[in-house]
Nucleic acid binder design. Structure first.
Length: 321
RNA sequence: GUUGGCUCUGGUCCAG
């Protein structure tokens, strides 16, 4: 059973919800861990109905499962259900309180977030990191800095969070200063620094910095794609998209959006269509969003193929506006 | 003496 669960969790982390489902259905016995893994897998899909179904059909509930459910409500924007569940819980621990703190922050309720944080007797590192990130999201730079400075210990997440505060605030100098000061760095740290250059309109510096990065993940590439598109450097966007494939980093919905926007701005119908089709055929992205359909329809229509544009509109999986 | 839950980074259309 533990090994089954481990495989189940691996499928979930790799993003294979279908396999999670298949394995789950075929498992002869299941324990609490099994259910929690499945619930978490579904909640990452943002498919709340499915998650609630699992939760309600559970024979037993424990703290882990409740926390996973809190997180599911939080991710899907159901703050009131989240809060209700939290208040109904008899025992809570740090992980669970932290999930609730994050839920408030994620859904724009900084007051409640801060209040729960302050109310929690002995804070810990993760909780403080969540609060840091909450201040960042709300643009409370000074509160973030005060908290960061007062923390008895800091880990990589703390540093990345405070780095992001200055990056989001558009303070390139301070971001760079902190970045150089960091005791250790991860790809996330590099990605934040890259975003700071990009936000500061320092396209050339960003490009240079990108070259020096120890490794690139999907976020690094997406940041570059978006930057090139925003600055009207369409050929760079396409070049980037090609390099990304060469590095075997699979583009996702976010990175495709930047590329399609680039095609749109450049009025490159041929490339836009190729990319749009490749998204489904080669990358298995079956659910283009309105924004992506919008790019392609715009391109097609501007090129004068009004009938094609019309049939595209009719083929969309949602109602046209 | 590790089978499961929480914290950090990317596109933001539409609307206004």
């Amino acid at each position: 059973l533990p090994s089954c669960n481990a495989v189940l969790e691996a499928y979930s982390q790799l993003g294979y919800p279908d396999r999670v489902r298949l394995l789950f259905d075929s498992m002869p016995e299941r324990d609490m861990a099994t259910w929690t893994i499945v619930l978490t897998a579904y909640s990452q899909l943002r498919h709340l109905a499915l998650v609630e179904d699992v939760f309600n059909n559970m024979p037993f509930h424990d703290l882990f499962l409740w926390t996973a459910m809190l997180s599911a409500y939080s991710l899907s924007g159901n703050l009131s259900k989240c809060e209700k569940l939290f208040l109904s819980m008899k025992n809570v621990d740090f992980v669970c309180v932290n999930a609730m703190v994050t839920a408030y922050a994620r859904n724009g309720h900084l007051e409640e977030c801060k209040s729960l944080f302050d109310k929690t007797p002995s804070s810990n590192l993760v909780l403080q990191n969540s609060m840091l990130s909450a201040f960042c999201k709300a643009g409370y730079i000074n509160d973030a800095k005060t908290l960061f400075d007062s923390m008895p210990e800091r880990d990589l997440v703390s540093w990345n969070s405070i780095l992001d505060v200055y990056c989001e605030n558009g303070d390139l100098q301070e971001t760079k200063f902190l970045f150089d000061l960091m005791p250790e760095k991860s790809t996330v740290s590099f990605n934040i620094m890259l975003a700071a250059y990009s936000q500061g309109q320092q396209v050339d510096l960003a490009r240079k910095f990108f070259e020096t990065m120890p490794e690139w993940d999907l976020v690094s590439w997406s940041t570059m794609l978006a930057m090139n598109t925003h600055n009207g450097r369409f050929s760079e966007t396409i070049k980037c998209f090609g390099s990304m494939a060469l590095e075997a980093v699979d583009a996702d919905l976010v990175s495709f959006t930047s590329v399609l926007l680039g095609c749109n701005h450049a009025g490159d119908l041929k490339t836009g269509l190729l990319i749009f089709l490749s998204m489904g055929f080669d990358y298995g992205i079956e659910n283009p969003t309105k924004q992506q359909y919008g790019c392609v329809i715009d391109l097609v229509a501007r090129a004068g193929y009004l009938e094609v544009a019309e049939s595209l509109i009719l083929s969309m999986p949602f109602v046209a506006e």
